[in-house]
Design a protein around this nucleic acid. Structure first.
Lengths: 159, 159
DNA sequence: TTCTGTTATATTGTACGCAACCTAGTAGCG
DNA sequence: CGCTACTAGGTTGCGTACAATATAACAGAA
């Protein structure tokens, strides 16, 4: 029966789709308090670690298109967390830098990861470790598999 | 160090976020051929199984807002896959039904799940079973955990 | 130097996803 | 019947995502 075929991969894919949205719902109240969205938060995490970066580096770090990143950075700039300026050495590339306000935000964001870990894993600190490893490994396998087959598709499309 | 704290839950969350987009990228070429997006495909899956349903039932089945579902259904109607009409018994509720064209689409969509399974898991049929169970279980645990803590948050917000 | 191809980013258009709000229809109660 | 509360969907506004296209700057060859 057709529905047998459906259930296997459908069950996984729908769970991944649902999990992502449920996770965003967990982040939302925490990030709202900081005035950030999740992709903006990821951008700030990158900048808190590296202090600055080009648009291309940010796109590649978050696997995002310039069509997503470009307006996102404009909004972060409008919020006063970053500044953007073209490099004199190469006027094509735009360098993003933290402002004082952006740097200060890191302190407020310090509690976010732990609070999310509580939502996503469990409150039992001991159990957290086990689940963390398991989840991470399984997610990595799936990601790796998808990326591999995407590359295969893209290579095939050229021929 | 702050980055120790960050890495734990960040590593998981970013993987979930990335995995969802990578999965959508795998579906995209397959669904493009059918003239569907992934949420539209999920809607059609529901209708292929149940033949019809109210907007509320679809929202609840896919965990989507009316703000998402309502325009999505309009687009499916514009594509000729479904029709919408208000029930005479209760003029508030809108019933969605497959058209002939919508029903016919199921046949074309039959190969999608298997092809996705190949991208997401592996081509080795035997290995697929193991990975499937593992992934499903881990995703369910995470989903369950997030939903539980969301309900706790919402209950706390009332008080 | 000029032409050509490439690179880095920006813009446009379409479709989610969700919060907040709106509206019409229904139900219950006096 | 008239009032109120509730329910089912729809609308608006904002922020992603991403394909497709555009633009300006750079780099290398003729």
């Amino acid at each position: 029966m057709a529905h047998e075929q459906l259930t296997l991969s459908f069950q996984l894919c729908f769970r991944i789709y649902a999990l992502e949205r449920e996770l965003m719902a967990a982040y939302r109240p925490l990030l709202d308090a900081l005035g950030l969205t999740y992709p903006q938060y990821l951008t700030m995490l990158y900048l808190w670690e590296h202090e600055k970066g080009t648009v291309g580096q940010l796109c590649s770090a978050l696997s995002l298109d310039t069509g997503t990143m470009s307006p996102l950075l404009k909004r972060l700039e409008a919020s006063g967390f970053i500044t953007r300026r073209r490099l004199r050495s190469d006027e094509r590339t735009v360098e993003v830098t933290l402002t004082e306000k952006g740097r200060d935000l890191e302190e407020e964001a310090l509690s976010v990861p732990e609070r999310i870990a509580g939502c996503l894993l469990t409150n039992d600190k001991e159990e957290q470790g086990r689940r963390y490893d398991e989840l991470k490994q399984v997610l990595d396998q799936a990601l790796e598999q998808l990326r591999t087959s995407r590359k295969a598709r893209e290579a095939a499309a050229v021929n």
